[in-house]
């Protein structure tokens, strides 16, 4: 189980990094989302993995999983939606304003070529 989670975190991180290094806004946003998943799962895993012991207090049950990382990750998921939305909006605004969705400032000469 641990191996699956750890490797999933690794795969999502690698995919996220690769997409973040792309040149257009949309793949970069997707890459950031992937990284968000990786980080959230990573934080969640800091409570160690427990199967079948949700932190819902029940009479007669003694073992519960660690609730604290869950609470922290829950808000992180919601906040990351807000963050994604803002980034998408900024990317969209930039594209609509300049008809260009590159994330990098390009050298002035290249821009002049585009306009010519």
């Amino acid at each position: 189980m641990e191996l699956l989670v750890a490797s999933a975190i690794g795969v999502m991180t690698a995919g996220g990094i690769y997409l973040v290094l792309r040149l257009r806004t949309f793949p970069v946003i997707l890459g950031v989302s992937l990284l968000t998943y990786a980080v959230n799962v990573y934080l969640f895993a800091s409570g160690r993995l427990t199967i079948g012991a949700p932190p819902i207090l029940t009479d007669g049950v003694e073992t519960y999983t660690d609730p604290l990382p869950q609470a922290l990750v829950l808000t992180a998921i919601v906040i990351s939606f807000g963050m994604t939305a803002v980034v998408v909006m900024i990317g969209l605004g930039a594209y609509l304003g300049s008809e260009d969705d590159h994330v990098d400032d390009r050298p002035a000469t290249q821009k002049a070529d585009d306009q010519a």
Binding site: E2, L3, V5, A6, S7, I9, G10, V11, T13, A14, G15, G16, I17, Y18, L21, R22, A38, Y42, A45, S46, R48, L49
Partner: peptide, 21 residues
């Protein structure tokens, strides 16, 4: 970019794997 990504992925994997155990 792929090399950097794989490096980062391996690092994330190693870190999580280490502390989960």
């Amino acid at each position: 970019d792929g090399g950097v990504a794989i490096l980062g992925g391996l690092a994330a994997f190693a870190l999580s794997w280490h502390y989960m155990l």
